[in-house]
Simulated scan of single mutants.
Amino acid sequence: MAYNPEKISLEEASRFGIKVNFELMDNGQKRYKLDGPEGSSYCRTVGAETGSWQNSHYHKELSELYVVQFGWIVFAEMNPNGECHLRFLREGETVTVKSFVPHTIFMSSNAVTHTIKYGDVRSGIDWFAYEKLDEFTHKSLKSSY
């Protein structure tokens, strides 16, 4: 049996609550997103020409899975005691983030990541800034990679 799936149009996907969203972030990173109606999403992020941090945040309902496709990232998270933990991830490595954990990543120049957000958030946006972690990552760790 030949593999010959029928294409689904963006209009048809939209009727099922699927949205396509492409964004150029302030830090130069490009995001190519596919968002589901319950708050889940898939995002391919392409790093800027110069390595850069994303904005620190947490989710109340969603969990996230980061996959490094090309290049490398530094994953940073803050525990309830205010301690910051860093993890260096290379191509093929992954990290999972549970809800209520403040986190961010530094993407090396032109790195590519895949991020899957999963959970059920029908009540709106589930992204909350966490400036305390930004203060640590943006000031303590210089973005000179």
Rank of each mutant, 00 (worst) to 15 (best):
V95H: 03
N79T: 01
R90E: 13
F88N: 13
I18P: 02
G92I: 13
G51T: 00
M25W: 03
F22I: 07
L10M: 13
E23K: 15
E23L: 15
H85R: 15
F70K: 12
R90A: 09
S41A: 08
N81W: 10
C43D: 14
L34H: 00
D26V: 11
Y42T: 11
S99M: 12
R15F: 04
P80I: 14
D26M: 09
S41H: 05
R31C: 08
D26Q: 13
G71S: 14
Q29V: 07
E64L: 15
S52C: 15
V97M: 01
F100K: 08
Y32P: 03
L86Q: 12
K60V: 07
W72C: 09
K60H: 04
W53M: 06
K7P: 12
A13R: 12
F88T: 14
G47C: 08
F88V: 08
K19E: 15
T50P: 02
W53K: 07
L65W: 06
L62Y: 01
K30H: 08
L65P: 01
R44V: 11
L62G: 02
S56L: 01
K7H: 05
C84M: 11
P37Q: 08
K60G: 06
R90C: 07
K30N: 11
S63P: 06
A13F: 10
G51W: 01
S9V: 04
R44T: 07
T45C: 02
V67W: 14
L34F: 11
Y32T: 15
E12K: 09
G51I: 04
D35A: 03
A48L: 07
S40T: 06
E12Y: 05
G17E: 02
N55V: 05
F100P: 04
T94G: 12
F22L: 02
A48D: 05
V74M: 15
R15S: 13
N27G: 06
N21L: 13
R87F: 04
L62E: 00
H57G: 06
Y58M: 07
H59Y: 09
F16T: 10
E49L: 08
N55T: 10
E11R: 13
E38L: 07
V20G: 14
L89R: 03
T96N: 12
Y42V: 12
E91P: 07
G92Q: 10
E77K: 12
T50W: 03
Q29Y: 02
H59T: 03
S14I: 05
G47Y: 00
G17P: 05
S56Y: 02
R15A: 05
G36N: 03
G39T: 06
F22E: 05
N81S: 14
R15C: 03
E61L: 11
K33H: 02
K30G: 09
F70N: 12
S99W: 03
Q69P: 01
T96F: 14
N79Y: 02
S99C: 05
H59Q: 14
G39C: 08
E23N: 15
S52E: 09
S9H: 10
F75D: 04
L34S: 11
V97D: 01
E77T: 04
E83V: 14
E91D: 09
I73A: 01
L62V: 05
M25D: 10
P80W: 05
F22K: 06
L89V: 03
H57P: 04
